Amino acid sequence: MSVTTNDQRTITNPATLHDPTPFGYSHAASAPGELVFIGGQYASDSTGAVAPGDFAAQVELSFTNLRLALEGAGLGFEHVVRLGSYIVEHDLAKLEVLGKNLHAAFGDRLPAQTLSGVAALALPGMLFEIDAVAVRPAG
């Protein structure tokens, strides 16, 4: 079993399950403290409109917006224990783009994650959305 702990999160990947880290997630994550829920972040500009760009550009801007939402709550990527990712017309090429961004944001301490392939998202032109559950450290 692989267990890594720091002051914010404990990440667990049991040896009895496959190694999920190449796919951009961990099997379990936990932390003591207050839960903070971050609503869906997408490639939005300052007005909420979908910013122009291809899938890769939308994923990158969505992660920027997720970081800004976390910072607004006084948190960072290191506090995230769960992600929900939503990809329009999901395929392996899109999974590779997502994985690159996940590793850039989280390094080798990947939170638990569920990825859902969807037919459409809330606004025309949206190709990707991500939400998060973070933990504000106790104390």
Score class of each variant (00 low, 15 high):
61 L>D: 02
29 A>L: 04
138 A>W: 08
90 H>R: 09
37 F>P: 00
87 I>Y: 04
16 T>M: 10
138 A>G: 05
43 A>N: 06
56 A>E: 15
96 E>G: 01
90 H>L: 02
23 F>Q: 13
136 R>C: 07
4 T>Q: 12
16 T>H: 13
42 Y>L: 03
92 L>G: 05
34 E>H: 11
29 A>P: 06
67 R>D: 14
68 L>R: 10
125 G>M: 10
82 R>T: 10
52 P>H: 04
75 L>T: 11
47 T>Y: 07
39 G>W: 04
62 S>D: 09
29 A>T: 10
107 G>Q: 02
91 D>Q: 11
27 H>I: 00
105 A>E: 15
10 T>L: 01
41 Q>Y: 11
74 G>V: 12
15 A>M: 12
110 L>I: 06
109 R>E: 01
120 A>G: 04
62 S>T: 12
80 V>T: 10
95 L>K: 07
134 A>H: 11
54 D>G: 15
42 Y>F: 10
136 R>V: 00
92 L>D: 13
47 T>E: 08
8 Q>N: 14
77 F>D: 05
63 F>Y: 15
120 A>F: 14
100 K>V: 07
40 G>H: 06
67 R>M: 06
84 G>D: 09
127 L>F: 03
123 L>M: 11
68 L>W: 01
17 L>A: 13
129 E>L: 01
7 D>H: 13
29 A>D: 07
21 T>A: 09
51 A>F: 04
86 Y>M: 02
110 L>G: 07
69 A>N: 05
58 Q>E: 12
31 A>F: 07
95 L>F: 08
61 L>I: 05
49 A>C: 02
123 L>V: 06
114 T>L: 12
53 G>F: 00
101 N>G: 03
63 F>D: 06
93 A>Y: 10
22 P>G: 08
35 L>C: 06
15 A>P: 07
60 E>M: 03
66 L>Y: 08
50 V>R: 02
63 F>K: 03
113 Q>P: 01
104 A>G: 09
130 I>T: 06
58 Q>M: 02
110 L>A: 06
132 A>I: 13
10 T>W: 04
133 V>P: 00
31 A>I: 02
111 P>T: 03
28 A>F: 15
70 L>F: 12
39 G>N: 03
16 T>W: 14
117 G>C: 00
70 L>T: 08
21 T>G: 00
132 A>K: 13
121 L>G: 01
100 K>E: 10
97 V>I: 14
139 G>T: 04
93 A>E: 03
26 S>Q: 02
64 T>N: 11
45 D>K: 05
128 F>G: 05
86 Y>G: 00
61 L>W: 10
60 E>S: 13
100 K>F: 11
94 K>P: 01
62 S>C: 11
124 P>S: 14
75 L>S: 09
